[in-house]
């Protein structure tokens, strides 16, 4: 580049002055873009985890004999208890119901004067659970005396 150093400095100054509005515009857009990225990051924190949603389920128990004590545990806590069941029992329950389903631990104690099931000498209990979306699932358990079973409801592939 030819010319005196003073002239060169003057040309550079004029060029920068002319470009100033463009530089301002680009910087402002960059700041705005950074803000729009920061915004949505905080949003998912307000969304509750899917597994913690409680839903109302209807549970129906039907027994062949006299059940002297019946209880249902969910995640280690008792959610239903009855001292004596004869025939049928129906309850509404609020359960945490992840899409993987739930495991209910069901405990029974059968009374001595049991009505015998055909050919087995055992009592039967049928549990029906109406899960979210009004989908009904049914499990049947046979046994005598005191018993405990883990019954799975809901979940994929069922």
């Amino acid at each position: 580049m030819r010319g005196s150093p003073l002239l060169r400095a003057l040309v550079c100054f004029c060029l920068l002055l002319g470009l100033w509005p463009v530089v301002r515009k680009v910087t402002a857009q960059g700041e705005g873009a950074a803000e729009s990225v920061r915004g949505p990051v905080t949003e998912p924190q307000n969304t509750p985890p899917a597994g913690n949603v409680r839903v109302r389920c209807r549970l129906e128990l039907t027994v062949t004999g006299v059940c002297r004590g019946f209880e249902v545990l969910h995640l280690g806590s008792q959610i239903l208890q009855a001292d004596r069941v004869e025939g049928r029992l129906e309850r509404e329950l609020d359960l945490e119901f992840p899409e993987e389903g739930v495991d209910l631990v069901v405990g029974w104690e059968w009374a001595g004067n049991k009505e015998e099931a055909p050919g087995s000498g055992e009592n039967a209990a049928r549990i029906r659970l109406w899960t979210p979306g009004d989908r009904m699932e049914e499990r049947t358990v046979w046994g005598t005396g005191k018993m405990e079973e883990v019954l799975s409801f809901g979940g994929k592939g069922k």
Binding site: L75, G76, E96, D103, L104
Partner: peptide, 8 residues
């Protein structure tokens, strides 16, 4: 194991 929620 039934004490653990099925999604955990």
């Amino acid at each position: 194991v039934a004490k653990i929620p099925k999604d955990r």
